[in-house]
Each structure stands twice: as C-alpha cells, then as structure tokens.
Design a protein around this nucleic acid. Structure first.
Lengths: 210, 210
DNA sequence: TAATTTTTAAGGTTTTTACCGGATTGACCA
DNA sequence: TGGTCAATCCGGTAAAAACCTTAAAAATTA
C-alpha cells in the first residue's frame, strides 16, 4: 500500500510540481492545501500518513498547522519543506512535533528520503541543518520563547498579512469583538501600539514574509 | 521539434518539480540555473527558445537576468515565474522585455499556456494580474510604478515606521488630509490596499528595517 | 482544588479611513 | 506659449475600524 501524502504549499504550481515528483516515486498524494487551515481540515478528513508542510503559508503558517494536525490527526507525521535554514525555524518546528525538515534548495531526493524515514518512525533533517541545532534541541537549551499564546500568534499572523479585524474574525469563526480583544492583548504583551510595528515584529518572528 | 526551455529558480526542488511538469507537456528542459548569473551564461550557451525566470534569485534577480539574456541571447524569450502580484513588479518586468508573467499561485496550466503563447510571439499575463496593470500595458500608458515621488517615499517610510497619519502630518508640517492623500496615492501606485502590505513593501524596498 | 491564563464577547466612544471634491505650483512638451 | 500632467496641498462627510472597559466561560497550571 502506497504511503498517503497531504501536500501543503501556498503556491499551486509548486504543489503540482511536487506532486508529479512524488507520484513518480510511487507515493500517493491524497490531498493538497494552500494554507494551514485547509491543511488541518484535510488532515483530519483524510488522515494521511505524511503531511508535507511549507512553513510560509497564509492564514496559518506551517508551525501552526503542524501543531493543529498533531491534534486533529495524531497518526499523521509532519515533514516541513522550506527555504529557511535558520536555527530559530528548525527549533520551533521540532518543538511543534515535526518529524522531518527538508530544504527546498536541496534535491527532491531528500524529500523522498525524508518521507521514507519518517514513515518508518525515524526522523530526517536536511544535511545543511547544523548539528548544533540538533544538540540545542536535544539538550533543551533555552531559546527565547514567544510569550504569545497560540491563538494570539494566529491572530498576529493574519493581521500582519493585511487582514482586517473583520476578516480575522470570520476566518477564525469568532466575533469581531473577540478578534479585537486578541489584538489588543497582543499589543499589550509586546508593548507595541501600531499595526506597522506589529507587522515588522511578525516579520522578525518569521510569521510572515516581508 | 520541441520547445527548448531554460529553467531558473533558486530552489532545486522547485526546479525539479517544474521540469517534471514541463516534460509531461512535451517541452524539453535544456538547462537549469539557480541564480541570474548562471541563467545568463546558460542562455548564451544554449540559446533556448524560452527562459523561465524566478524573480527572487541570488546574485542577480529575474529582472536583471531578463535584461542580460536579452543581450546575450536575443532569440530567447523570457517568461517570469513569481509569487509577486504587485504592479511594480509586473511593469518592471515588462519594461525589461519579458514576454510572459506567470504567478506561482496559479495552476501549472498557466505556465504551459504562457510558454505556448510566448513562443508563437504573443504575450501572456497571469489572470490575477490587476486589471489596471493590464490596461496600462495594453494602452502602453506609462504608469508610474515604484517611481514614488520623494514626498511619497518620505510618507511611506514614516507610515512603515509606525507613525500615525497625524504624526506624519506634523513631522512633515502638512495637514492630516494631505498626509492621507499622499498615502492614498502611494497605495494606488503600488496597487496595495492595506497598511500591512505597505509595511512589507517598505521593508522589501529597504526603506525601513523589519 | 485553587489560581491563572486563555479565549471568548459586548457596549459605548473615539479615531481613522474611503471617497467625494477642488486648488496651486512647476515641469515638460508640442 | 499655452496646454497637460504630476506633485503637492487641503476639506467634508459617511462608513469602517480601532480603542476602552468590563466580564465570563474554558482551559491550563500549580
């Protein structure tokens, strides 16, 4: 029985390319998602063996999606596929429970290898990921953590993407007032008082692309 | 005789995926490049019919590569493949002599269509490209793009720094209304509709630090 | 279990934006 | 030299968004 895969990347063209590559290798791509929300919903519905998640996605980024999928479909193992080599991203992903971390700058063979390793319960990190990062994770060295709650991170990402409070509310299925509350609280916590600074903060945190 | 294609994108995995898709369609990918320099060299060496260029590449970006290829291999037609929908990217690309502009967020079919159109000397723009840009292009109207006036750049920077419109006005010794109309005009020019996107644009332009 | 944080929400107020308009200056061009 | 156009400037009004305060389930943690 082929390994069943969910593919999440915000660029349809990239997804189609990856699908072609993966199907050549005998994997079965059972679903595609363009954002973290959709990925989570599809993971719950399809319970794929592997979810391949881009880190930079709108509405909900890869980290958020990894956590959500861990809840919605525990048997699904997550492989992150990204351009980011920075330690911060890797560690955050590992803490979110991902099993593989593959760089887009590497050959497709690495993704294939990652899928095979992860699906037999091992882990896989692209060869460019420094050993120090892994050490840091294993030794549980303290890295400055976000004081923001998961929900707040979600709201922050959406705000930084340019969503209005109304849009945020409807995307998260909460009232406008609640969305407002979240944003107010984020600003309080971060001691930030304008949207522009919030956007810059979100970019520094890697929640959105510049 | 199949259409001969040069593929340039800084992510090997994406290139491999696109190659798979294009070869399924009967095109012949004769070369791959990971940056603008390499793309230019290969274009000169291989004189492909079509060069597909990502805009975001190291060493030399897609625009620079498009111009260089126009010199090095005049018979090669350039199709830009990117995630950017902003007017200034599109127009800049058009001015650099590109023949197709395709968004990565669209289906691969659009890239195929673009290749066919361009290779028979037509042009192709992805359907998400704003109508105003298309109009500007079709009417050959010289629409100002990133040619923000000095005053507008000033306002943009202040806005991106988190200054309120009121603060901008007082810093520049103009009325709030004037500051507002500057910002409105900036957004018009850039085809951007929220402050958050404006901030991200300013960061990309290097006007402010993230 | 108790304490705390998170997430949710509303009512009333203030601020900002969107959209309409027009005026002036200076540069460029036919 | 008169016309055009971009840049700069400013105002009114209606709508939208943000802000302030309060608060109560729900989830987490101690």
């Amino acid at each position: 029985m082929p390994i069943r895969i969910l593919l999440a990347d915000d660029h349809q063209m990239v997804r189609q390319g990856l699908r072609a590559l993966l199907e050549q290798e005998g994997f079965k791509v059972v679903g595609e998602a363009a954002d973290g929300h959709q990925a989570t919903r599809l993971a719950q519905e399809l319970t794929p063996d592997i979810a391949i998640l881009d880190l930079a996605m709108p509405l909900m980024n890869g980290i958020g999606a990894a956590k959500a999928i861990g809840q919605a479909s525990p048997q699904t193992k997550v492989v992150v596929l990204t351009m980011h080599t920075e330690a911060q991203y890797v560690l955050e992903a590992l803490r979110a429970g991902i099993r593989g971390y593959v760089l887009k700058s590497r050959a497709a063979g690495e993704l294939v290898q990652a899928i095979r390793e992860v699906s037999r319960n091992s882990t896989f990190l692209s060869s460019d990921i420094s050993d120090t990062v892994v050490d840091a994770y294993l030794n549980k060295v303290d890295v400055p953590t976000d004081t923001l709650s998961p929900r707040e991170l979600q709201v922050l990402q959406l705000v930084a993407e340019g969503k209005t409070t109304k849009e945020v509310a409807s995307l998260l299925n909460i009232s406008v007032k609640t969305a407002e509350s979240h944003r107010t609280r984020i600003m309080e916590k971060l001691d930030i008082h304008e949207t522009a600074s919030l956007v810059r903060y979100a970019i520094r945190r890697g929640l959105v692309q510049p």
